[in-house]
Amino acid sequence: MSTRGQLLLLWTTPVAGVLFLAAYLMFPGFSPPMSPTMTPEEVAAFLQANLTATRGVVIFVNLIGASLVPFFACIAVQMLRVGNSSPVFAYSYIICVGIGLTAFILADYCWGVAAYRPDRDPQLVSLLNDMAWFFFIAPAGLVVVQNLCLAGSIYLDARPKPVFPRWVAHFNVATAVLMIPGAFAILHKAGPLAWDGSLSFSLRLATFAVYVAVMFFVLLRVVQQPVESEGVLL
């Protein structure tokens, strides 16, 4: 298995990270995150006031939304090398990436549609905004299962020299646990679990950022293992 292509795709991860950071900083809805208690009129007024920035970010995220996929693909390919009896964890992982990405892009679209005609009925603008937040929350659940799949696969690696070091499995379980509060933002309108709260928003995004950074360095080493002669079973 050649490492060149994987390395190339892996190095798109820092680029994607910078792009996502830029989108995060530019999005008016995130700094500070919009409160779930805003009334429909307030949401509509907020969008009106931040129209240009919102539209710009929506287009930008629409373009870069899938830029982390090569990173996840690298993980999936390495999961296929792990010494499990079957590729079941790797397949689960890929499907999870697909579902999470779709939800993320739908969130982007909802904000985009809301900003397209901000003067429509505030109830509809608010509905689109709520829907956008729901879809923004959803990938948290997918990342939980995704990480648990990766962890399970590493724990059960039968190779004498495992593909991933074992601590990566612990690390994945830990990040999965830290992502769980994110999903509870659907239940709460105030406090740390609300979608603008410290656990659902700050902790979740920080965890994800750290996760991607750490896994990037892990993968840098994993991808460069000397396995030129080895094939990958799909």
């Binding site: 999870c96 999903a183 659907i186």
Partner: peptide, 25 residues
């Protein structure tokens, strides 16, 4: 509550489908 549980568990649908896929493979 239903939405929250489903959000956390929807990834398991992927795991269930992966079981089919392993046999198809």
């Amino acid at each position: 509550i239903a939405c929250t549980i489903l959000t956390l568990a929807i990834g398991l649908s992927a795991v269930g489908n992966a079981c089919y896929m392993v046999q198809m493979r």
